[in-house]
Amino acid sequence: MTIDLAYVLELVLNGLMLGLLYALIAVGLALIFGVLQIVNFAHGELMMLGSFTMALLLPLFGLSYWPSLAMAVIVTALVGAAFYQFFLSRVEQTEFERSILITLGLSMVLLYGAQYIFSATPRMVDTSWGFEGIEIGAIRMTWTRITGGAVALVAFAALYVLLKWTQLGRAMRAVAQNREAALMVGLKPRVVSRNAVTLAAGLCGLAGGALAPIQLVQPGMGQAVIFKAFALVIIAGLGNIPGAIATSLALGMLESWIGGFYDMVWQEGSVFVIMIVAIILRPEGLFQARGMRVG
């Protein structure tokens, strides 16, 4: 097999884009885990919700990308806020099993609810950009892919600023690091938790919305992503946000390469092989002592 440089570059770019969107999911998962000590099994379905919102709204907005994406983020964030208010706020810190059952149950309800309403048939989502894109030499990227990656980059920059420089974000890190100290300085852990879930859900909506025109939209799409996101968060070290971003990018790249040169089976399984090796070699995660932690 001769390796074509343009092909390799295309794989790298696609991997980067895919990794950035994975990272949006993984970061939200890490954020919820850090602040609430809850593993959110319904996280993938929130992304699916974002994709369906995008798919359903695009025709209403005359296929225009930005208003549909904005609505996907808003709708998913509001669902996240309601999810916290009605379910997660009732779970105590120590009730780990209850939190798993509640989020897992909600994941199932959303998954099969979507299947009932929209059927399991995958749908193609078209935007006003269609398949237009840019071509540099032999490399071709569609606008939807370029925009997807760019949107994720902007989201990370915004998230960094929020967590690092605003009291709102600092409060999330504070609750994750020491709840008693958070009470001492007058934080309300419930309000902070609600903000964190809303933010994480919004990131899911963004990822789902951006993925909709790139992948086929179907109710099971969240399931495919969520276990990878778990693996990513565990490889990075629970609660470690920069670590989650770095591992997501690495995974996107890896999947793209493996998908480009080997069978699909290897693509799906590779991340879990890496996760198991990582857990055995570095139980605390690859990025344990560095970076901005929320847990």
Binding site: R170, A181, L187
Partner: peptide
């Protein structure tokens, strides 16, 4: 409270800013 009650991986500056939260 008793025992270490701060935000250990944040700087002194950030800890004091969180003190100002209210």
């Amino acid at each position: 409270p008793q025992g270490r009650c701060n935000f250990p991986s944040m700087s002194v500056a950030e800890n004091l800013k969180l003190g100002c939260y209210t």
